[in-house]
Write a protein that binds this DNA or RNA. Structure first.
Length: 850
RNA sequence: GCGAGAGUGGCGGAAUUGGCAGACGCACUGGACUUAGGAUCCAGCGGGCAACCGUAGGGGUUCGACUCCCCUCUCUCGCACCA
């Protein structure tokens, strides 16, 4: 084994030892500081991909590092096991989703174990098991009781291909986030979670979450979208009815010259005068049909129709034509907008198109505006004009004054609106958590009593392509009795959005086998919050917002004591790779391309930009192949070294070779010097030994700080490589064998979190019995860092002209004299006056001459 | 359109507080060893003969700028008629 580094047997050996020792099993221990480390759990698609390898390698460094530093580290793994692909597999391949899922889990578990990650596998959780989802059902019942879960009929995002509802967060460019079919509107009775009740707190807390990346917090804030303004009533002419609008620009009220309603507004049809009724009905029908897909695309032309009716501006008395407009959305604010074309670009475009009146009510300071010549709405701050008693006020001040005035007169009131909508959680799918309610003809909707949980997903259902939810056709499931009156009743057949499972799994890991509730209080109180969460930035809004919401709900239910689930968040970048496309053969695997030419037809291939690995573009690397060829340690090292964690990682076969070569080099370095190391007892060459020891301790410091403070694994590894280079470069190794032994042991210990298998093997080869992890994290000796002399850069007018070595504690005068005495420096200052000499201690001297 | 981030050798990336730009690795070049090399070792490696010039481009602050400020360009991501 010694001659050559062969990773396979080494890795197998240590994985077996870890398994036999239960090396990563943890329990609560009040005596030690706890550290809860979590990586986002995978969907069991069948095979792990490079994104997983990267995500979990990053996590594993942190986990092993913290363990070596003495923390009690909870590092669990599990499966986000409900979801569509399982059901599709059932339809396409006649495999039951449960079997498909469990097979995939078994396969992926083996793959993860082959990577040597330090998980406590005893805590493994799969969300598709009744042991897991029964508690999800229980939490739901509590939410229902509190009014945090409710049912309402609403227009939902319907994916015709997946035949299910999508949350707003799951619609991308008007298309399904999974299958990319165009999403359609559909009216359905749906379950919702009242996340809006927590909008303010979810927003406020983003300002306290210092351990999260700012871009993620900003995305969440934008998604929550708080805006402050007023609701104002507009009297409809010739009617008792009023139209209520929401505006953030009440300062422009005097400039409101028409009204825009969403086509779905309840009064839309009613307001149409008889002569226009038909045209209005047609317009409403047409816009409704288009709905979200087209209406929200940026190219969409503003379009509207006059209803024939008018309302009155409450402050000016002006008759305002009431229009229906395609750009007004129904589910934000009141679905009605007061239009101020001079100070809102949408209203401006609309008014120009339909020749509607414009009045300027805000002017730029020291200037005027003319509606006839304006090219665009003026939306900057300015001074109010044509605004009665408010004319002359700066508009920000006018916002407050007009709001006060409206409230006094009873014409309107201040109002805060959020862009965030309630979370639609109903899915018309089989492979998900059944929603535990029952419908009775007499009693209506009845929650399943807690004692009857779990509502188990039935096994025997029929899957067919294009069919409805198979659950709905499964009578053994749907047919039940009412828990209240005992009459025949029907079960809810909707299941939960899979994001519900991932909204609380991090709590379940604290006590994964707890059968008294979703989790054991003491365990949760000990482990939570998660100290470090690691995952892809694609979850910046959906999962991370839902999990925050759930935590707050559970807190208010008295089940947890924390306000926020994840103290620190690291969002790692994608793994990407070039893609190749042949004009004739489409996407090609890299091996099908030679020198930019398609091997099949000899045509030139188009080399795609580096993008996320995907099967469809054939730019994928199978982790199994990587492990087989190079070993898990090399795979880990490559992922950690090639880029900092939050950046995209570009796949490079050469880079993997480099990582592999480095490990082989360390291996050789240890075995070549084994005899020397074992008998080392004194250093003859004090200077060389001292230099090596300094480098060793500097490296410990650098690597520790890079991991602990910055998560900069790439530079930490680079520092270890430098130390290895320094060791290799040693002339007479025998003359400083003690220092060499120290340096090599440090290299191995510093490498342990990154490449644990080879580190253990080398540590053992050096004669240690307890394992490298048990040796703890090395500490650096401050005294070893001290230097007697420093090399100073000497600049003349900011340009490097020389270098001088001075004593570390040399006074400024001596430094200055030494700098000026340098022959090359002297040449550049000859014949000039030295105006100033800037001395930066231990770094440089800058001589300013004129 | 709005919001955020980024732009450094042939490539991935360093430069932590404004202080030697290019650490570390890859690729490449030359050499050694060798039956052989996709192994290993040694040397070189931003541009330029040089003075010098170089961190997307232009200005500024400073003794000194990849780093701070202003403008412009390009790219990536998020939101996208939210009134």
């Amino acid at each position: 084994m010694e001659e050559r580094y062969v990773p396979g047997p080494v890795e197998k050996k240590w994985q077996e030892i870890w398994r036999a020792k239960d090396a990563f099993k943890v329990t609560e221990d009040a005596a030690r500081p706890k550290y809860y480390l979590l990586e986002m759990f995978p969907y069991p698609s069948g095979r792990i991909h490079m994104g997983h390898v990267r995500n979990y390698s990053i996590g594993d460094v942190v986990g092993r590092f913290k363990r070596m530093r003495g923390y009690n580290v909870l590092h669990p793994m599990g499966w986000d096991a409900f979801g569509m692909p399982a059901e599709n597999a059932a339809i396409e391949r006649q495999i039951h989703p449960a079997i498909w899922t469990h097979d995939n889990i078994a396969n992926m578990r083996t793959q993860l174990k082959r990577m040597g990650f330090c998980y406590d596998w005893d805590r493994e959780v799969a969300t598709c098991t009744p042991e897991y989802y029964r508690w999800e059902q229980q939490i739901f019942l509590k939410m229902l009781e509190k009014g945090l879960a409710y049912k309402k009929r609403s227009s939902v995002n319907w994916c015709p291909s997946c035949e299910t509802v999508l949350a707003n967060e799951q619609v991308e460019d008007g298309c399904c986030w999974r299958c990319h079919s165009e999403v359609e509107p559909k009216e359905l009775e749906q379950w919702f979670f009242r996340i809006t009740a927590y909008a303010q707190e979810l927003l406020d807390d983003t300002f306290k979450m210092g351990g999260w990346p700012e871009p993620v917090l900003i995305m969440q804030r934008n998604w929550i979208g708080r805006s402050v303004g007023c609701e104002i009533d507009f009297q409809i002419e010739g009617s008792e009815k009023k139209i209520r609008v929401f505006t953030t620009r009440q300062d422009t009220l005097f400039g409101a010259t028409f009204m825009s309603l969403a086509p779905e507004h309840p009064l839309a049809q009613e307001l149409a005068t008889p002569d226009r009724a038909e045209a209005v009905a047609e317009f409403i029908a047409r816009i409704r049909r288009e709905d979200k897909i087209h209406r929200t695309s940026d190219s969409q032309e503003k379009e509207g129709i006059f209803t024939g009716s008018y309302c009155l501006n409450p402050v000016t008395g002006r008759r305002m034509p009431i229009m229906l407009a395609n750009f007004v959305v129904t589910d934000y604010g009141t679905g009605a907008v007061m239009a101020v074309p001079t100070h809102d670009q949408r209203d401006f475009d609309f008014a120009r198109k339909y020749d509607l009146p414009m009045v300027v009510v805000i002017t730029p300071p020291g200037s005027t505006l003319d509606p006839a010549t304006m090219k665009a709405a003026y939306t900057e701050p300015g001074i109010l004009v044509n605004s009665g008693e408010f004319s002359g006020l700066p508009n920000e001040e006018a916002k407050e004054r007009i709001a006060d005035w409206l409230e006094q007169k009873g014409l309107g009131e201040r109002k805060v609106n959020f862009r965030l909508r309630d979370w639609g959680v109903s899915r018309q799918r089989y492979w998900g958590t059944p929603i535990p309610v029952i419908y009775c003809e007499k009693c209506g909707m009845v929650p399943v009593p807690e004692k009857d949980l779990p509502v188990v997903l039935p096994r025997d259902v029929a899957f067919r392509a294009g069919g409805d939810n198979p659950l709905a056709a499964c009578h053994s499931f749907t047919d039940t009795v009412c828990p209240v009156c005992g009459a025949p009743a029907r079960r809810e057949t909707d299941t939960f959005d899979t994001f519900v499972e991932s909204s609380w799994y991090f709590l379940r890991y604290a006590s994964p086998h707890c059968d008294k509730g979703p989790f054991d209080q003491d365990a949760v109180n000990y482990w939570l919050p998660v100290d470090q969460y690691i995952g892809g930035v694609e979850h910046a809004v959906m999962h991370l917002l839902y999990a925050r919401f759930y935590t707050k709900v559970l807190r208010d239910l008295g089940l947890v004591r924390i306000d926020e689930p994840f103290k620190n968040l690291l969002t790692q970048g994608m793994v990407c790779m070039e893609s190749y496309k042949c004009p004739e053969h489409g996407w090609l695997y890299p091996e099908e391309v030679m020198d930019g030419i398609c091997r099949k037809c000899g045509q030139k291939v188009v080399i795609g930009r580096k993008e996320k690995m995907s099967k469809s573009k054939k730019n994928v690397v199978d982790p199994d192949v990587l492990i087989e060829r190079y070993g898990a340690d090399t795979a880990r090292l490559f992922c950690l070294f090639a880029a900092p964690p939050e950046k995209d990682l570009e796949w490079s076969e050469r880079g993997v070779d480099g990582a592999s070569r480095f490990l082989a080099r360390v291996w050789r370095l240890v075995f070549e010097n084994l005899d020397l190391l074992k008998k080392a007892n004194a250093d003859q060459n004090a200077v060389a030994a001292r230099d090596l020891r300094r480098a060793t301790h500097q490296t410990i410091k650098k690597v520790t700080e890079d991991i602990e403070n910055r998560f900069q694994f790439n530079t930490a590894i680079a520092a270890i490589m430098e130390l290895v280079n320094a060791i290799s470069a040693l002339g007479d190794k025998e003359a400083c064998a003690l220092a060499l032994a120290e340096a090599l042991e440090v290299v191995i210990r510093l490498l342990a979190p990154f490449v644990p298998h080879i580190a253990e093997e080398l540590w053992e080869a050096l004669g240690h019995e307890d394992g490298v992890e048990a040796s703890g994290w090395p500490a650096w000796d401050k005294a070893m860092l001290a230097v007697e002399e420093v090399l100073l850069v000497v600049q003349v007018n900011g340009k490097v002209r020389g270098k001088v070595t001075v004593a570390t504690d040399a006074p400024d005068d001596a430094v200055r004299a030494a700098a000026l005495a340098d022959p090359n420096v002297a040449r550049f200052i000859e014949g000039k006056t030295v105006k100033k000499v800037v001395i930066v201690p231990k770094r440089l001297v800058n001589v300013v001459v004129g």
